[in-house]
């Protein structure tokens, strides 16, 4: 499965949750599949989805799901110790590990070669780290939500992108409607 097929499958789970979504094609895909005010789309700033999501989870009680990428985790690897040492049980970091920088043309990342992000997360002190296959994503994500425990999910999947238009919504509009969804 490629990322867009996974997002399509888990859209019913994401719909009712606060979602912080990774830069580029991941956000475009989520926006095209099921745009919600409770989705925070990153339009830039590669690497910070996991940090934004953690700050959000620590600041308020609703569950937060971060849809991140292997390349973005690699570029902000310092995020994993911060996550591990500041446990927020309403936080789920879901790393779509397609082994590539998808948005920029599927160039391979080191996560697709020798580097295991699940092992890195564990070594950083993260608990409830689960590596799963693409086909099991929905089940694993739902279980993580139901557990009420912080989770790091590493979803191993194929490289590839769906063709969708860029997001033209103004960033302040994205942010404002998201904050209203947080408060709702």
């Amino acid at each position: 499965m490629i990322r867009s097929e996974i997002l399509k499958e888990i859209a019913p789970i994401l719909r009712d949750q606060l979602v912080v979504c990774n830069i580029g094609i991941p956000s475009q895909e989520l926006h095209a599949i099921d745009d919600q005010p409770s989705n925070f789309y990153m339009l830039g700033t590669m690497g910070l989805a996991s940090s934004i999501g953690l700050g959000l989870a620590l600041a308020q009680p609703k569950p937060v799901i971060v849809i991140d990428g292997d390349g973005s985790i690699l570029t902000n690897m310092g995020t994993l110790p911060t996550i591990a040492n500041n446990v927020a049980d309403n936080y789920i970091l879901m790393i779509i590990d397609n082994g590539s920088y998808g948005s920029t043309g599927d160039q391979p990342t080191y996560a697709g070669r020798k580097t295991s992000l699940a092992k890195v997360a564990e070594a950083c002190g993260c608990e409830n780290v689960i590596e799963c296959r693409d086909v099991d994503t929905g089940e694993v994500l739902q279980k993580a939500l139901d557990s009420g425990k912080m989770h790091v999910l590493v979803v191993k999947c194929d490289s590839g992108n769906a063709k969708n238009p860029v997001i033209t919504m103004d960033p302040v509009v994205i942010r404002d409607r998201f904050m209203k969804a947080v408060q709702a």
């Binding site: 912080v20 910070l48 940090s51 934004i52 953690l54 620590l58 600041a59 902000n76 110790p81 911060t82």
Partner: peptide
């Protein structure tokens, strides 16, 4: 709530999230 970060851009991401969650960072 004091949350040390490992790099300052990471820290700004944390602050952005906290602010959207209703806390002043």
């Amino acid at each position: 709530f004091h949350i040390p970060s490992n790099k300052e851009d990471e820290g700004m991401g944390l602050c952005a999230g906290a602010w959207m969650g209703g806390k002043r960072p």
